[in-house]
Design a protein around this nucleic acid. Structure first.
Length: 189
DNA sequence: AGCGGGATTTTCT
DNA sequence: GAAAATCCCGCTT
């Protein structure tokens, strides 16, 4: 099968690296949007900053599903962020998608989000707005429309920058953030 | 250019 | 009751 998710059915940190360079295809209102993942962060149950750290709840339930599902959460009373569930160790693990690069359908993205250029999708809540991702897609299987994940060949480690995560107060020193070196859409250097 | 506050859901102490 | 995996706007330099 061409769209086999076994490559991300691994420990999260490894899956977060492999997801760099992979593409998301969003179909909405008959239009197709294609983007490339350029920045990710890993979260699992051993991590004090992860939603799954304190066990399973109604909100993080999707994190306990098999790899290849989408976990969407609402935060700060205003924004959505989306994650790709990885590893089926049943303890709750997912990769936060922090930034993407538009490939096709940029005009459609601008309709959902009234910004242009780098401001279109260089942050976790920004890309959810540009791709019209909300709670309706929570728990969605990324094998099927209207949102598909297309895995791509693993990038060389030389093309990947590995550093600490953004926007958290706990476990700040863990090197679980990954991005494509020198990509202009990365949310923060 | 840079800082600070507000919006407002879900969860935990 | 408060903090959180954020973003945007308006005020100050």
């Amino acid at each position: 099968m061409q769209n086999d998710f076994s490559a991300i059915d691994t420990p999260v940190a490894q899956a977060a690296e492999r997801l760099l360079g992979c593409e998301l295809i969003r179909t909405v209102h008959g239009s197709a949007i294609r983007v490339r993942i350029v920045e990710t962060e890993a979260y699992d149950s051993t991590d004090a900053a992860s939603h799954s750290y304190h066990g399973r709840t109604a909100r993080n339930d999707v994190m306990f599903k098999p790899a290849g599902h989408l976990y969407v959460y609402f935060t700060y009373g205003l924004h959505y962020c989306c994650n790709i569930v990885t590893g089926n160790d049943k303890s709750g693990a997912a990769v936060l998608i922090r930034a993407v690069e538009p490939l096709t359908g940029e005009d459609t993205m601008k309709r959902f989000r009234s910004k242009t250029g780098l401001e279109l999708c260089n942050g976790p809540a920004k890309l959810c707005q540009a791709l019209a991702i909300d709670r309706q897609l929570n728990g969605h299987n990324l094998h099927v429309t209207p949102l598909k994940l297309q895995l791509m060949p693993t990038l060389s480690s030389a093309a990947i920058t590995k550093t600490t995560r953004v926007g958290i107060k706990k476990a700040q020193n863990m090197p679980w953030r990954f991005y494509i070196t020198n990509n202009p859409y990365v949310s923060r250097l």
